[in-house]
Design a protein around this nucleic acid. Structure first.
Lengths: 155, 155
DNA sequence: TATTGTTATACTCTATAACTATA
DNA sequence: TATAGTTATAGAGTATAACAATA
């Protein structure tokens, strides 16, 4: 039979103390939580975070090619292809052969791309506000500094 | 022709200022950096972090079943199946039907599983030492507190 | 010969629905 | 009917190798 609606049904407390003491596990859970919160603001019909980051970088670097974009976002070049195919099909990005070096394709946002990016930046700001409220006392600059210090470990 | 071997070939500085100002992007890059560092310590022949976390939880909770394990690790039940199939095939975990409720399977580490877990915990400690050295001045407790605060946002 | 964009492949992870066997 | 384990499926992300067009 179903138990009374306690907080969590499986009361028999599981010992997670080892994993919970590690930065690696904590940062994974934190990252999942932050992304889930972003999607809460983006909504079901919204962009993926991958497409959002592509639009954000193309917007500030009009004419950038796919290889530079991939390197900036730290993904493999082949990964950009289906992403940009979708964004082009949606009418948010244009790919135009570069006349100087026809191997390159210049990427630009369309007007529709600018609109959808601005809309999602507004929604993203909503998420960041929620996150910063959540973090209360911790200064946002400290959080960022710390995360980028960690990110810099890369090697 | 190949350029002189400058730090990064694509000098024409890409503007990433928007994404770099967000916690969401920073935490993604930080998480990737931390996982890459873990794998540097685990080595090419090592466990995946997913399998490592399974072994770590089963070790401290002998007899746990797959559903409880999945909930503790915040993954879907079906995800546990191929993971445990592999770990069982490797001889690290045993699945034993629970006589009291034959729907449940009690999970336990084998002797080989204990050995490989201890080995990877040693390698994991090596990674954590490297990470903490990297973070220098930032106190590890502050880092963890912060990350778990972020993780708690979930909702 | 090297580079850009692309195709192809394979593997991991995620998310769902539905099945089976038990209860 | 509800739950545990499982199967199946589809999508996203990651990693590699290799190809065509271009330089």
């Amino acid at each position: 039979m179903p138990e009374a609606e306690t907080e969590r049904n499986q009361a028999p407390k599981i010992d997670m103390s080892y994993l919970e003491s590690t930065i690696g596990y904590a940062i994974r859970r934190a990252q999942l939580a932050v992304f889930a919160d972003i999607y809460r603001s983006f909504g079901k019909d919204g962009l993926t975070v991958a497409k959002f980051s592509v639009l954000a970088v193309v917007a500030d670097n009009p004419g950038i090619n796919q290889a530079m974009l991939a390197e900036a976002l730290d993904v493999e070049r082949p990964r950009m292809v289906p992403l940009l195919n979708d964004l082009e099909k949606s009418g948010f990005v244009s790919r135009q052969a570069n006349p100087n070096d026809r191997r390159n394709k210049s990427l630009k946002l369309t007007d529709a791309g600018c609109l959808v990016l601005d809309d999602h930046k507004r929604r993203f700001a909503e998420h960041e506000a929620r996150l910063k409220t959540w973090l209360e006392n911790s200064s946002p600059e400290d959080v960022l500094d710390l995360l980028w210090k960690v990110a810099g470990l890369r090697a």
